[in-house]
Deep mutational scan, measured.
Amino acid sequence: PDDEWKERLREAEEKNNWKLFEELARKAGVSEEKIEEWKRRWS
């Protein structure tokens, strides 16, 4: 299951679909801290 969400995150990233990325990350149990960090790195 871990690989599956990583794959989906990669797809979201490729499409630059931040909303989807964020949603998937939350569902995968990624901390808000980590998500914010990704946001900063991404923008």
Rank of each mutant, 00 (worst) to 15 (best):
E23M: 08
F21V: 07
V30Q: 02
E36T: 06
R26M: 06
E36F: 06
D3A: 11
R8T: 10
K27G: 08
L24R: 03
E37F: 04
W18S: 01
L20W: 15
R8W: 15
K39Q: 04
G29D: 01
V30F: 15
A28M: 12
L9S: 02
E32L: 07
E33S: 09
N16V: 04
L9N: 02
W5L: 11
K39G: 04
K19G: 09
N16D: 09
N17T: 05
S43L: 13
E13Q: 15
E14I: 13
S43E: 14
E23P: 00
R10N: 09
G29V: 00
N16G: 15
P1K: 10
E33F: 05
R8E: 11
K6F: 15
S43R: 11
I35T: 00
N17H: 03
R41T: 12
A25E: 00
A12W: 10
E23C: 09
R40V: 09
E11Y: 04
A12M: 08
S31K: 04
V30P: 00
K6R: 13
K34C: 12
K27V: 08
R26G: 01
N17R: 04
W42D: 01
A25C: 10
E4W: 14
K34Q: 15
F21Y: 04
F21K: 00
W42L: 07
W38C: 12
P1C: 14
W42P: 02
K34E: 13
W42R: 02
A12P: 01
W18H: 01
A25G: 01
E37H: 03
K39S: 04
K19M: 12
E22T: 04
D2V: 09
A28W: 09
G29L: 02
R10V: 08
N17S: 07
N17L: 06
E13L: 15
E32C: 10
W5F: 06
P1E: 13
A28D: 02
S31R: 04
E33I: 05
W38Y: 11
A25W: 03
E22R: 02
F21R: 01
K27N: 11
P1T: 12
R8K: 14
E32V: 05
S31G: 05
E7G: 04
E13V: 15
K34I: 13
S43V: 10
K39P: 00
S31H: 04
R41A: 14
D3P: 07
W5M: 05
L24H: 05
S31A: 10
S43H: 14
I35D: 00
E37W: 04
A12Y: 08
N17I: 06
W18V: 03
E13A: 15
W38P: 00
A28Y: 12
E22M: 07
E36L: 12
K6Y: 15
E32K: 08
F21I: 05
P1W: 15
E22P: 00
L24Q: 05
F21L: 06
E32S: 06
W18R: 01
K6E: 15
R10M: 10
A25K: 00
W5V: 04
D2K: 08
